Simulated scan of single mutants.
Amino acid sequence: MSEATTAPRIAVIGAGFLGSALASGAARRGLAVTVIGRSDPYGLGDSASPADVVFVPGCGAERLPEVLRSGVDVVVIAAGGHFPVPSGSEPAADVIGTLSLVIPVCELVRAESPGTAVVLLSSAGAVYALGTEPKRESETAEPTSPYGMSRMVAEQYLAYYGRVHGLRTCALRCSNIYGRLLPRTRGQNVVSAAFWSALTSTPFTLHGGGRQIRDFLHVDDFVGATLDLLAGHQQLPRVVNVGTGVGHSVSDLISAVETATDSVVPTVPGGAAITDRGRLVVDTTLLRSLIGFEPLGLAAGVALMARDVGKR
């Protein structure tokens, strides 16, 4: 571990699910946080006062120079590219969208504020291959989708900027994060899809018989772990898994949603693509060596999400 720091000033690029959750969580801790995004879709001003979260409208890294000049310790990239499903039909656009953000961010930090760390929210589920054992950061990435390929290449660019230009960079390989009812048109997040089916009686498409096992992490645990990492260490490892280290099947997830909502999730059989079967759980040994981390279990996390959905 390196020397601890306190109260990092954070800039988050992207105001979507993870970006807005991270910004709101930072504000609740009293941290100075700025969000750069096309829009404010989740109403950051509703969850934290304007004094806590500064929202800067902009696309990509175009507004980053002025934010860096105001003083930033960490830039978190929570945007770029497509969602996993759409990336399959537009692989070139996905990688261009990802790298056209990651590379300019690193170049701007290098020129304007070389002491600022750059952290990428990557994807464990997209980067690792399926396997029987929990995936360690040292394992070779074997993406099975254009989305995963883009994340892998983005991670390599961060490593390049660290190795050649001395930037402090880190990729957080996040497991399946849930905790907010996301739009059904988004094409990802199996937990939100199960909730929508429970709430609307719309059939849930059960790929691979629901036997595939994944690592489900509540968004509050993701936010807590990320902020603890940013606050506690000046030099993070190049890659850190962020997950629970525990696997549950999609069928287990459906049962948890049914219990939490006191509803039935109707299902219809779907296909069994390579990404819809097998086991993918992350090893959290490195994460737990860096911070104290005890995430919610699946049942408790789904119950918390159900309570939050009920407040809508």
Results as ranks from 00 to 15, higher is better:
residue 117 A to P: 00
residue 170 C to V: 01
residue 249 S to K: 12
residue 267 T to L: 06
residue 251 S to A: 14
residue 43 G to L: 15
residue 171 A to V: 07
residue 97 G to E: 06
residue 270 G to V: 07
residue 81 G to P: 04
residue 220 D to T: 05
residue 23 A to D: 05
residue 30 G to M: 13
residue 71 G to I: 11
residue 113 S to W: 04
residue 228 D to K: 09
residue 281 V to N: 03
residue 275 T to F: 04
residue 290 L to W: 04
residue 232 G to A: 12
residue 140 T to L: 15
residue 245 G to D: 10
residue 122 S to F: 03
residue 222 F to L: 12
residue 280 L to P: 00
residue 249 S to H: 14
residue 181 L to W: 12
residue 151 R to F: 05
residue 14 G to N: 06
residue 211 R to T: 04
residue 63 R to A: 09
residue 244 T to D: 05
residue 178 Y to V: 09
residue 69 R to H: 08
residue 109 V to T: 05
residue 64 L to Q: 08
residue 42 Y to M: 12
residue 29 R to S: 10
residue 25 G to I: 04
residue 232 G to T: 09
residue 210 G to C: 10
residue 123 S to G: 13
residue 34 T to Q: 15
residue 3 E to G: 13
residue 78 A to D: 03
residue 310 G to W: 04
residue 34 T to N: 03
residue 252 D to N: 15
residue 38 R to Q: 11
residue 4 A to K: 11
residue 167 L to K: 02
residue 85 V to K: 08
residue 191 V to I: 15
residue 195 F to N: 07
residue 120 L to V: 02
residue 220 D to C: 03
residue 106 C to D: 01
residue 125 G to M: 14
residue 131 G to Y: 08
residue 132 T to M: 08
residue 44 L to C: 13
residue 138 S to L: 10
residue 162 G to H: 07
residue 211 R to N: 02
residue 129 A to I: 02
residue 208 G to Q: 07
residue 105 V to K: 02
residue 218 H to R: 05
residue 238 R to I: 02
residue 18 L to P: 00
residue 73 D to C: 01
residue 266 P to G: 09
residue 159 A to V: 09
residue 211 R to G: 03
residue 284 T to C: 12
residue 100 S to L: 03
residue 176 N to R: 12
residue 121 L to W: 07
residue 229 L to I: 09
residue 282 V to C: 12
